[in-house]
Design a protein around this nucleic acid. Structure first.
Length: 468
RNA sequence: GCCCCCAUCGUCUAGUGGCCUAGGACACCACCCUUUCAAGGUGGCGGCACGGGUUCGAAUCCCGUUGGGGGUGCCA
């Protein structure tokens, strides 16, 4: 690959953030379309435990949204921790070139001096003290006078007055590199040409740009994406929001739906909102990215998911639902599940699901030895009018039915309803509750057809017996 | 505090000076369809934050105000 080089640089925190996923998708679209490269770098400088596991988690999460490490445009993962020497070397290079200097002041020293002088922040006090390395000595960047203009592909030129940027720390007192430095050095090492990241990094961009220049490299193309926020309009965070991509996956969201929804946050697909990835990849343009923060709306995500579930063929739907259908906590034992029955009912189940996890609850009565009876539904249905009589007549009629088909079942019940002056909506209720245990569910006659004559009648008779 | 970003229906957005009586989608409401619940169809509700300019003409350009957010660490 010779084209532009993009990157995402997640830290291994144990899950992959939906905001990170959106950023990854924007990078991925561009890397693919422009014949470039998408670099994955794990920023693991602080991570102490389970590094391999967490890294795999990130790779799996990316794969789930279609960013495959097997794709020729994918490169990595690289690990920031493996570049520690380069980070230190870069800091030393900056010191040697006069762009950085050692400082021995602690946070307490700085606070104390500011109290006396009535200042705020670090005032460059050690700039000309000629200090060398030593225990507890940090390396600070010598911010030059003037202004720094960040050319941002989504926001245009953003100007910063260098006088307002303090001489920030590059290397801690223990010699370890700070994020800002490590980030720049890694991007340089990986020959990154385009940095697309969330807007929270915009304020620190002039510092990084100054480092690129001081290190003798032209800075990359910057593009800061609008933040994803919660209903309080604050950036979504693990603390207060559901941000783990894995959690949505586990709850039964389809990756295509998640990808499509994420792409609409800060960008608008050409034509209809529901759009295949291949098309979005072709249409995506940084210039079209919105500037304002976007609310991560679960309701809209759910709507997208329902839309995508309905687009599935019955076979794809069954396949996608399998993990929930056969799970230990499914409403029925795995060995009672019947694929053929599920497949037959699938077209009726799909429009009733928001997530794949919903399916099991919709079809449970088909695979349970006996339906779980909703007491309130039972009482309400059989407490009124001719419900019991209807059920009795239905048992007789169904027992004598020549053909056990949905149409025949419906016809027979309609006839019974007419005898009582009831509409089909009312007439089907007693049968539905007897067979499924509930007043709501998938179309009754289709369900009876797949359940079979023997089992359907057994349940209806059992209900009859209970009713006395 | 200071710096930076942002500002169209509740939400995501279309809109780049006349095509805007501001369009779509989600949500919400009503009706239709109907075998319950969904799905689907039709319709409705609902917005250019405010104040000044510029212009024949402003949602669109400029300034200010207000509001929201982000940053400002020997966190990432």
């Amino acid at each position: 690959m010779t084209g532009p080089r993009f990157r995402i640089a997640p830290s291994p925190t144990g899950y992959f953030h939906v905001g990170g996923a959106r950023t990854a998708l924007f990078n991925w679209a561009l890397a693919r379309r422009l014949g470039g490269t998408f670099v994955l770098r794990i920023e693991d400088t602080d991570a102490e435990r389970n590094q391999a596991e967490w890294t795999q988690g990130i790779i799996d999460a990316l794969a789930w949204i279609g960013i495959s490490s097997g794709d020729p445009h994918f490169e990595g993962p690289y690990f920031q921790s493996e570049y520690a020497e380069a980070h230190v070397a870069a800091a030393q290079q900056l010191v040697a070139g006069g762009h950085a200097y050692y400082c021995d002041m602690t946070a307490a020293d700085i606070e104390a001096r500011n109290k006396v002088e009535g200042n705020q922040g670090y005032q460059g006090w050690s700039r000309d003290r000629g200090l060398g390395p030593g225990p507890g000595h940090v390396v600070r960047f010598r911010v030059p006078a003037g202004t720094t203009v960040v050319h941002d592909l989504v926001r245009g030129d953003v100007e910063f007055d260098n006088a307002l940027i303090e001489d920030f720390v590059l290397l801690r007192g223990n010699g370890s590199p700070m994020f800002l430095l490590a980030n720049v050095v890694d991007d340089m090492a990986m020959r990154i040409t385009h940095v697309l990241r969330a807007e929270e990094h915009l304020s620190n961009t002039p510092k990084q740009q100054m480092m690129w220049e001081a290190l003798g490299h032209p800075s990359p193309v910057w593009a800061h994406l609008p933040l994803l926020v919660n209903e309080q309009r604050k950036k979504i965070s693990k603390r207060r929001d559901k941000v783990a991509l894995e959690q949505y996956r586990d709850e039964g969201y389809l990756p295509e739906a998640m990808v499509n929804y994420l792409m609409t946050l800060g960008w608008t697909p050409k034509g209809p909102e529901i759009q295949p990835w291949a098309q979005m990849e072709v249409d995506f343009l940084l210039e079209d990215v919105t500037h304002s923060p976007a609310f991560f709306d679960l309701k809209k995500l759910a709507a997208f998911n329902g839309e995508y579930i309905r687009m599935l063929t019955p076979e794809q739907f069954a396949e996608a639902c399998r993990p929930w259908l056969l799970a230990d906590d499914a409403p029925f034992p795995a060995d009672r599940f019947d694929e053929a029955v599920f497949l037959a009912m699938a077209p009726h189940i799909q429009p009733r699901c928001v997530t794949l996890a919903d399916a099991a609850g919709v079809v449970d009565f088909l695979f349970l030895a006996d339906p779980v009876v909703d007491e309130a539904a039972w009482a309400k249905t059989f407490g009124a009018g001719e419900a019991v009589a209807v059920l009795r007549e239905a048992v007789v009629a169904y027992d004598a039915l020549p053909e056990w088909t949905a149409d025949a079942l419906k016809g027979a019940l309609e006839t019974i309803g007419e005898g009582h002056g009831l509409k089909l909506g009312k007439t089907q209720a007693p049968v539905r509750v007897a067979v499924t245990g509930r007043t709501v569910g998938p179309p009754l006659f289709e369900a009876l057809e797949v359940l079979g004559r023997a089992e359907s009648l057994r349940r209806m008779r059992a209900a009859e017996a209970t009713l006395g």
